[in-house]
């Protein structure tokens, strides 16, 4: 029983964590929190089902196409909803522009794909629903792969260091002659890939359902809020903790009370520590 709660809790937690990382990657490059993070996760599932189940492409091809498509959505987000409002960051227009774009993605999917959840293809056929079923460990695998990949990218490659420089200080990075705009586009493509991977890896668990967008938006944001903005390790810890907490609450109190419990914890932690548990202090204002 404990194993069942842990398996499903860690699995959904890994998806939440990856959406949290998606938020963070976009934020680091642009100082923008985007409502499209959860939609990217939703699209990962929908594109996977579309390419593999509906169009009958081989799994590997479908996987690659899904990530490519999500990367493209990430780039479009940057062009349509982020770049035009970057100049007026302090007015928080990005909240509105990304909300608008996210709603458009979700509604379009609802109408053109389906409002009923659609099946996501079985990728390997390992496990038969038990705690070691692939639908539980695939998200964890994806989460681990993303963490390792990001570490390698940031520590070992020039592009990765440039990402870090931009995240650290936008103006200074531009003054150093870094191609800030291209790096931002690349970051949004990367965020698209991570979000898409989250949805794809969690597809068997979450199904290909348009409504996942809103759910992931919220539950993917919770780890960011808990772990601190821009702190990907915090997001992973927060995400996994949230997943397990949510499933444990489902098991102990069940139903509506579980979601109320998650929300209450979220609000209380936020009010007590607005910058998150591992987050940085507030920046200078004057």
């Amino acid at each position: 029983m404990l194993s069942a709660i842990l398996a499903s809790g860690l699995a959904v937690g890994a998806v939440y964590a990856l959406i949290g990382v998606t938020y963070n990657v976009m934020f680091s490059a642009s100082r923008v929190m985007s409502f499209t993070a959860g939609q990217l996760g939703m699209l990962g599932g929908v594109f996977g089902a579309l390419f593999i189940s509906r169009l009958g492409l081989p799994g590997v091809v479908g996987f690659a196409l899904t990530l490519a498509a999500c990367a493209l959505v990430g780039v479009i987000t940057e062009i349509v909803a982020v770049r035009p409002v970057l100049g007026r960051l302090e007015q928080h227009l990005y909240v509105l522009s990304t909300l608008a774009f996210a709603l458009m993605i979700q509604q379009f999917t609802a109408i053109e794909w389906s409002t009923e959840p659609q099946p996501f293809p079985r990728l390997f056929g390992i496990g038969s629903g038990g705690p070691f079923d692939e639908k539980f460990w695939l998200p964890l695998l994806a989460c681990a792969a993303v963490i390792v990949g990001l570490e390698l990218l940031y520590r070992r490659t020039l592009v990765g260091r440039a990402f870090l420089a931009i995240a650290e200080d936008n103006f200074a990075a531009r003054a150093l002659g870094l191609p800030e705009r291209n790096l931002r586009i690349a970051s949004f493509a990367l965020a698209g890939v991570i979000g898409g991977l989250a949805g794809f890896a969690g597809g068997e668990l979450l199904l290909a359902n348009f409504a996942n967008g809103g759910v992931l938006n919220f539950y993917g944001f919770v780890p960011v809020a808990l772990g601190g903005l821009g702190n990907s390790r915090g997001a992973v810890v927060g995400g996994l903790a949230l997943g397990v907490f949510q499933q444990a609450a489902n098991f102990t109190v069940g139903g509506v009370f579980a979601s109320v419990a998650v929300f209450v914890v979220f609000i209380v932690v936020l009010l007590a520590a607005p910058s998150g548990l591992f987050g940085p202090q507030q920046a200078r204002r004057v």
Binding site: H92, F218, A225, V256, S259, V260, F263, F266, P274
Partner: peptide, 29 residues
């Protein structure tokens, strides 16, 4: 609205979204 006094813009937007969901759930339960 109270969280607005402590939270940043996006956080506050998310918190109000959460409230909207919770109130409906409470009405159901």
């Amino acid at each position: 609205g109270l969280p607005a006094l402590r939270l940043r813009t996006f956080y506050f937007a998310m918190a109000t979204l959460g409230f909207a969901t919770i109130v409906t759930q409470v009405a159901l339960a």
